[in-house]
């Protein structure tokens, strides 16, 4: 989708409701009131932007490591043993991404668990099942969350695609 295909209303929907979504019986009607449109139109608009891949969902961003614990983990596996290792890793329902990357540390995957102890147990199990050490790199800080997003300068489909001056300050 090109920038020009997004109406002003679309950009407003993408920009203005990333925070403080109404906690009321009819939240989309509240959005509509602010946009000067109707509840039905707003719901249709969000559905359309979702279908276009611009909106992921309407919902909550949960503070990492509060209701669950996750980590980015990696293993160094010889090229000819990759397929077998992948089979072992992907068997786990707690693994939700698994990529091969061009490095000696070549298998990268995310593991989510109920808590830290649960995670440790899963990783230990994985080490013994695969026969390779598992390196775990839990997140300490997300710079994007801490900064907050403004699509006005962050996104290629927004009206301005300039790098924010803060990038160089």
């Amino acid at each position: 989708m090109e920038t020009t295909e997004l109406s002003l209303q679309d950009r407003r929907v993408l920009n203005e409701f990333q925070h403080h979504f109404p906690l009321s019986s009819s939240p989309y009607a509240e959005l509509a009131e602010r946009l000067g449109s109707s509840e039905e139109e707003v719901i249709g608009q969000i559905k359309r932007l979702k279908k276009a891949g611009l909106i992921s969902r309407v919902g909550a961003v949960i503070q990492p490591h509060t209701i669950g614990y996750s980590t980015l983990a990696a293993m160094a596996v010889p090229a000819e043993k990759i397929e077998a290792a992948v089979k072992v890793i992907n068997r786990l329902p707690q693994v939700n991404h698994n990529y091969e990357r061009e490095d000696e540390m070549n298998l990268w995957f995310v593991v989510t668990a109920e808590d830290e102890a649960d995670l440790e147990q899963i990783l230990t199990q994985l080490e013994s099942d695969s026969g390779y050490p598992v390196h775990s790199f839990p997140m300490v800080r997300d710079f994007h969350i801490d900064l907050g997003f403004s699509l006005d300068w962050k996104h290629p489909y927004s009206s301005s695609n300039q790098v924010h001056p803060a990038a160089f300050s």
Binding site: A60, Q63, H155
Partner: peptide, 10 residues
């Protein structure tokens, strides 16, 4: 626990 509620863009 919930950092924000809103439209989550890709």
């Amino acid at each position: 626990v919930i950092r924000r509620m809103g439209i989550i863009v890709h």
